[in-house]
Design a protein around this nucleic acid. Structure first.
Length: 185
DNA sequence: CGGATTTGACCAGCGC
DNA sequence: GCGCTGGTCAAATCCG
């Protein structure tokens, strides 16, 4: 692991976004599903602009961000045991932060599938490896407790989601609907 | 039964 | 070249 900007963060800082728009005045111009709304939004730009999710890192402009976005999940992972996507040391957009929590996994709104766990040197605690369950999304994260202070969980994200999180969409859909409505006027 | 997790094996990179 | 380490695969197992 090489240097990743470590963002101190407490669980208290994490909360679902709230919006104060008067939703009662909405006329529901069309019956649109969340998916339809989501498909109209440039999620990569939107999410990579979010300082909470990805720190203040500029989205890298070269192959790094492509690595994160090309969703090439299947192709270089067929067969080749332990070889997949491990060519040269690339450092796609990566952000790490620590949280003080009894739970290893903090609920960031996305769904993750665990694909490995390793004991790491100089640490009493194993490191867990997760991948976003979305097929087209190649984002990974690593979770590990600090050996010094086991109440602190270090989460390292690698890559940028190319889709909205389910929870984010839940909170955003009324706002998006209204934005769409206004843009048609 | 399908999806998620566990876990041992495999592989590449790196330092010596 | 060799051993160590971190990252990933995939079969086995678990669980809802």
């Amino acid at each position: 692991m090489d240097e990743v900007p470590l963002v101190p963060l407490t669980l208290n800082n994490i909360q679902a976004p709230t919006y104060s728009l008067p939703l009662t005045s909405l006329h529901q111009p069309r019956q649109e599903t969340i998916d339809q709304i989501a498909s109209d939004v440039d999620w990569v730009s939107f999410l990579s602009a979010s300082p909470f999710i990805f720190g203040n890192q500029k989205p890298s402009s070269t192959s790094e961000s492509l690595t994160a976005e090309n969703g090439g999940r299947g192709e270089n992972r067929t067969r080749n045991k332990g070889k997949a996507s491990r060519t040269k040391k690339v450092n796609p957009s990566r952000i790490a932060f620590h949280t003080r929590s009894i739970d290893d996994i903090l609920d960031d709104g996305y769904r993750w599938r665990k694909y490995g766990q390793k004991a790491v040197k100089n640490s009493n605690h194993p490191r867990s490896y997760y991948r976003c369950t979305q097929l087209t999304c190649n984002v990974k994260k690593q979770i590990q407790r600090l050996s010094k202070d086991s109440s602190i969980v270090v989460t390292t994200y690698e890559g940028i989601h190319n889709h909205p999180s389910e929870k984010l969409m839940e909170s955003l859909s009324p706002l998006l609907r209204q934005l769409q409505f206004l843009s048609r006027i």
